[in-house]
Design a protein around this nucleic acid. Sequence first.
DNA 1: GCCCAGGGAATCG
DNA 2: CGATTCCATGGG
Length: 275
Amino acid sequence: MNFIQRDNNLLITQSENFNPFDSCECGQCFRFNKISDNEYSLIACGRRLNMQKTAEGWLFLDITEEEFCKSFVPYFDLNRDYGSIIKSFSADKTITRAAEAAGGIRIFRQDPWETLISFIISQNNNIPRIKKIIESLCALLGEEKNGVYSFPTPQSIATAGAEGLAPIKSGFRAKYIVDAAEKVLNGTVDLNRVAAEGYDAALAELKLIKGVGDKVANCVLLFGFGYYQAFPIDVWVKRVIDNFYNGDFDPTILGEYAGIAQQYLFYYQRSLLKD
DNA sequence: GCCCAGGGAATCG
DNA sequence: CGATTCCATGGG
């Protein structure tokens, strides 16, 4: 990875298999804003990070190489060779085509607790409104620092209760959010254990939470814990499976990085609709 | 007014 | 088991 420090900003010239904008737009994270076609603002790793697309490469504002390497190289999963992972899918023509359209996507390594609550909020919901509810939740119960609200702790959410969450207008999901907070607090669900116990046990443990089924749990395992074999099936991926695989698809044949193929397919199917 | 949104729980046969 | 229905809310 080639870093060039420009005053307070950091330039990265690598563009192959790295597009932070597409990575934000593929539905894996929700705390970001598109400022223009050439600038996004992302809240991650406890700070706001503004990112610009320039003729020379990706420019990250107000950050040192040291901080970027410590926080955002892991967050953007930049030490993984996505090119070789894409090659591993070459037997599948649909995934290969999707990867050509979406090959800059990286799987963000997000905070497990934030990811859990975010995808509980995502159920039967649309992305703009998911973003709005999460923003409201952080403003309501997070702590402000340098103009950025932290993600609320399990304790603060449990204390607020479903009634206390009313201002964020999450609807029927409020009781699920509170159940997640309570189960994390009382140890029914231990996120450190989920991180370590392996895919099958981790899936079962997350599903102990009300409002967490197969889809939400797989998103949390993929985006919050780095279980790359997780293959969440939502309405968009269902459409891919119906359109390109006659409704029959077994993700386990894709191997340990099936979840990366899933992101390409999700982005690809949504891009087909836009045109 | 209708339908849908990165679903899941509850309740049926 | 599989199939329905309901759940809050907002945008198209």
